[in-house]
C-alpha cells in the first residue's frame, strides 16, 4: 500500500464509488424507523465512504472532505443531539427518551414519536461516523497511505 506513485485507476474508482455509498448511508439513517438499519448502520456506511477516500488518495485530497480536527466536535454534537432530545422530554414531565411528550407544539403523539426517533438516529449516525473516522486518523498518526 505504501507505493511510490499514484494509481489513477484506484483514485478514479474511489471517487466514483464514494457518493453512492454516502447516499445509501443517508437513506439508511432516514428510513431507519420502518426498515432494517438505523443510525449505527448508516453512520458506519458514511464512515466507510470517508475512509475509502482517505485510504485511496491520501491526505492531500482527503483534507478537503473532513479535516482531522473536525471529527471530535462532530462526535460531541451527535452525542449532544441524543441527550438533548432525551432531557427535553424529561423537562416536560415524561420519562427519559419518551418521545410522545416532546415539547413541539401542534403535533399529536404519533407524529411526535416518529420525529423523535428520526432526531435520535441523526445524532447517533453523526457520532458513529465521526468516531470511526477519528479512530482511523489516530491509527495512521499523520502518515500518508496513498
Amino acid at each position: 500500500m505504501r507505493s511510490q506513485f499514484d494509481s489513477p485507476i484506484i483514485v478514479l474508482g474511489a471517487r466514483l464509488l464514494t457518493p453512492y455509498i454516502m447516499v445509501f448511508g443517508l437513506y439508511v439513517i432516514f428510513h431507519g424507523h420502518y426498515s432494517p438499519g438505523g443510525g449505527f448502520q448508516g453512520g458506519t456506511l458514511l464512515a466507510a465512504a470517508v475512509l475509502l477516500i482517505r485510504v485511496a488518495t491520501g491526505r492531500r485530497v482527503s483534507r478537503l472532505q473532513i479535516q482531522e480536527f473536525a471529527t471530535t466536535p462532530l462526535a460531541v454534537i451527535g452525542v449532544i443531539i441524543y441527550f438533548a432530545t432525551g432531557f427535553a422530554v424529561m423537562i416536560t414531565g415524561g420519562y427519559f427518551l419518551d418521545y410522545g411528550q416532546l415539547p413541539i407544539p401542534g403535533m399529536d403523539p404519533v407524529w411526535l414519536r416518529y420525529t423523535g426517533i428520526l432526531i435520535i438516529e441523526v445524532g447517533i449516525g453523526l457520532a458513529v461516523m465521526a468516531i470511526l473516522v477519528m479512530i482511523f486518523d489516530n491509527m495512521v498518526k499523520g502518515e500518508d497511505y496513498a
Binding site: R2, P36, G37, Q41, A48, L52, V55, L132, M139, Y145
Partner: peptide, 25 residues
Amino acid sequence: VDVGFTEAVIGAGVTGILFVVVVYQ
C-alpha cells in the same frame, strides 16, 4: 436482516480497512 446488515457493514467494510492499516504499521 438487521444483524446481517450490521455484520456486512462493520465486518466487511470498516474492520477490513482498520486491519489493513494495522498490517502496514
